[in-house]
Amino acid sequence: MSAALLFAVFGLTGVGIYLITSRSLSRIILGFVLLGHAAVIALVTAGGPPGEAPIAGRSDDPIANPLPQALALTAIVISFGLTLFMLALAGRQQTLSGSDLVEDDLEDRRLAARAEREAALEELREAALAEEEES
């Protein structure tokens, strides 16, 4: 039982992280959904061995630890809300920029523009040098 859950956590985490590293927002959101599931399963597994439903006086068998289940439920609700918010944000991004790809941040764009400028200058300089040598 526990081993299966453990591998489920591994698998979900791996796929989740792979998806988060991509540039498309919808994939990133899916990645977070999977990662959230992995975390919730880890939380439930942390509660110890499985057992009967935790209602007192129902049976004599050992019952499951209810506390991590309560924690897991809270976490599920939170991640559900956040998924919706991210989807809304991705939708807004789609209408504003026409794609759901993550855009470069300000510094990145500045650096890229600077590199282009310098490369252009370098070319001009080399061309000028070559002309001088010819003449």
Binding site: I20, L25, I28, F32, L35, G36, A39, I78, L82, F85, M86, L89, A90, R92, Q93, L96, S97, V102, E103, D105, L106
Partner: peptide, 17 residues
């Protein structure tokens, strides 16, 4: 705001996870 907000949300959501 949407562009930088997205990276803000992603980083913080990762930390929360």
């Amino acid at each position: 705001q949407v562009r930088s907000g997205m990276s803000y949300v992603v980083m913080n959501l990762l930390a929360s996870t």
